[in-house]
Amino acid sequence: MKYPILLALTTLASALPQKRATPQGIDVSSYQPNVDWTTVKNNGISFVYIKATEGTDYVSPSFSNQYIGATNAGLIRGGYHFAHPDLSSGATQADYFLAHGGGWSADGITLPGALDIEYNPSGSECYGLTASSMVSWIQSFSNTYEAATGRYPIIYTTTDWWTTCTGNSAAFGTTNPLWIAIYSSSVGTLPAGWQYETFWQYADTGSNPGDADLFNGDAAGLSR
């Protein structure tokens, strides 16, 4: 993501030999402005999440070119929004995301938008919100996105942050797919409410640009 996940775990370069048959992906932002998408595709990458927005005043200058490049290379792709719950409401940020690349369409190649909600890069870990206020903020974002697209957004987070800042809320496990970030050989304990992860960001480096991800399923499931 735009900011490194603050985990005290070492990235494992060969952490997932048992899961290599599952669709592999990456996520990128303006930190990777010039991606060779043909090479990425040839390396076996099937999908990509691309940073689109942050708060209500930032649109990634790389988003458009990255999105077009990934599309032209034949990758399944989607946008993500880095949340700043301290700056404006969830609904306001969802609308901003939707207006700047975060939309969804049933074309078979567009992933639902993702809400990147994690450690505050420049202040209080939980953005000054109580656990109940944080849950309400996420619900506001999620409901606004679903009302506009018919799909609930993916939630990207870590178990540690989720437990600390939402009180380990189980409110989203039956609606929002989970994209878990944990740099280890297994996903470990998931946040409450989710029985499994849909995406797993398992490393912040690799042979491709950006972070390394896996889809929990097969190619047909990813397309669905």
Rank of each mutant, 00 (worst) to 15 (best):
Y127L: 01
E125W: 00
S132F: 02
I154C: 06
G188I: 09
S186G: 13
T175L: 13
T159E: 15
T158F: 09
T110C: 11
S122C: 01
A131N: 14
I138K: 02
D107E: 09
A147N: 15
T130C: 00
Y145E: 05
T163W: 07
T158E: 08
W162T: 06
D160V: 14
L129W: 05
A131Q: 15
G150A: 12
C126A: 10
P121G: 04
R151P: 01
G128W: 05
T189A: 15
W137G: 01
T189Q: 14
A147S: 15
T163H: 12
G173E: 12
G108Y: 14
Y183D: 04
T164D: 15
P153W: 06
I138D: 06
S133D: 13
D107M: 08
Y127I: 03
C126D: 03
W161I: 10
G128I: 06
I182W: 01
E125K: 08
W104A: 04
I155N: 00
S169E: 01
D116K: 09
L98A: 08
A106F: 12
T149P: 00
G167R: 10
L111C: 04
G167D: 13
Y119R: 11
E125Y: 05
Y152I: 10
T159V: 13
T157I: 07
I155P: 02
L98D: 07
W104E: 09
G103Y: 01
V135E: 03
C126K: 02
N176K: 02
S136F: 00
Q139E: 14
T166S: 05
V135L: 08
T163V: 13
E146T: 08
D116G: 08
A170R: 05
S184D: 15
S133E: 13
A114T: 11
E125L: 10
D116A: 07
L178R: 03
M134I: 07
E125S: 10
A171E: 12
S136D: 13
S185R: 07
I117W: 05
Y152S: 10
G150V: 09
A131G: 01
D116N: 09
G123R: 03
P112W: 05
Y145K: 06
P121F: 01
S169C: 06
G101Y: 12
P177A: 14
A106N: 15
S132N: 13
S122K: 05
F172C: 11
S140C: 03
N120F: 12
S122M: 03
L115N: 02
G101R: 11
S142G: 09
P121N: 08
